[in-house]
């Protein structure tokens, strides 16, 4: 029998299978690597770069980098987390993320990853862009102020729902989420609240209506314990227990 292939991350040996990314191998081993645009259910996108790790002295995104035998990966270190914090701060100032006024607060991955990396302030100058809110759909509201262009809704609608409701238009700082309908509004599209795309948004950009504060602030997923403990790592660990 072949011995399992492994790499080293923060002093721990992580097993992997051929073709597995660093982040998925780490997740399977119960190790958290911060991420926003990555969701193990979808093809990696590599756009947010928050999962950046140091691999043998080079900074790479762990969601797109295949694991390889003998790699030395630095994940949870001050320099790597400083780099992540700067990326998060840029995401915060590029949009309008008003946590005290957001229904997603406490269950928001952008906020939770920022807590994890110790972000206390935005550091940069705010853009305060002017963006719309689309409340045309009876079940869902889209607040473009909070979109971080992770393309999870794009991937979910295209790859799971088979609908192509969402897309990203424009380039660079002009990039924005657009909706595939005659009017460009969600209410006139094929979107349905049962779609996979309705439940993948890591921030408060795609929000279900009529349930805003059913779970009170203070009792939400990331309010008491960090995303490194209760995020998808917890689900991966639960899966392990179920299998074992």
């Amino acid at each position: 029998m072949n011995t399992r292939k492994t790499f080293r991350m923060d002093g721990r040996t992580i097993p992997f299978e051929d073709g597995q990314s660093i982040i998925d191998a780490a997740l399977a081993a119960g190790e958290y690597i911060p991420h926003l645009c990555h969701n193990p259910e979808f093809t990696p996108h590599g756009s947010c770069r928050v999962c950046t790790v140091d691999v043998d002295g080079r900074m790479v995104s762990a969601c797109t980098q295949p694991a390889a035998e003998g790699q030395q990966v630095v994940n949870n270190s001050d320099p790597v987390n400083h780099y992540r914090r700067r990326l998060l701060q840029m995401l915060f100032v590029e949009g309008n993320h008003v946590c005290p006024g957001c229904e997603k607060s406490g269950a928001c991955q952008l906020q939770a990853v920022a807590y994890y990396t110790g972000m206390l302030a935005p550091h940069f100058t705010h853009f305060f862009p002017r963006r719309e809110v689309d409340a045309s759909h009876p079940d869902t509201v889209i607040d473009f102020n909070r979109c971080i262009l992770c393309e999870l809704c794009v991937r979910a609608s295209r790859d799971v729902d088979g609908k192509n409701v969402f897309s990203i238009s424009g380039r660079g700082i002009q990039s924005r989420l657009i909706i595939n309908s005659n009017t460009g509004r969600l209410g006139d599209s094929d979107y349905d609240r049962a779609d996979k795309a309705a439940s993948v948004c890591p921030v408060g950009a795609i929000l279900p209506k009529h349930q805003g504060y059913e779970v009170p602030i203070g009792e939400r997923l990331y309010d008491q314990r960090p995303i490194s403990v209760v995020g998808d790592v917890a689900q991966a660990k639960q899966g392990d227990n179920g299998d074992g």
Partner: peptide, 15 residues
């Protein structure tokens, strides 16, 4: 606090 740190609720008028 949020308003000193990032403008907070009053900065919503920037829209």
């Amino acid at each position: 606090g949020a308003c000193a740190v990032n403008g907070g609720i009053p900065a919503m008028r920037n829209q």
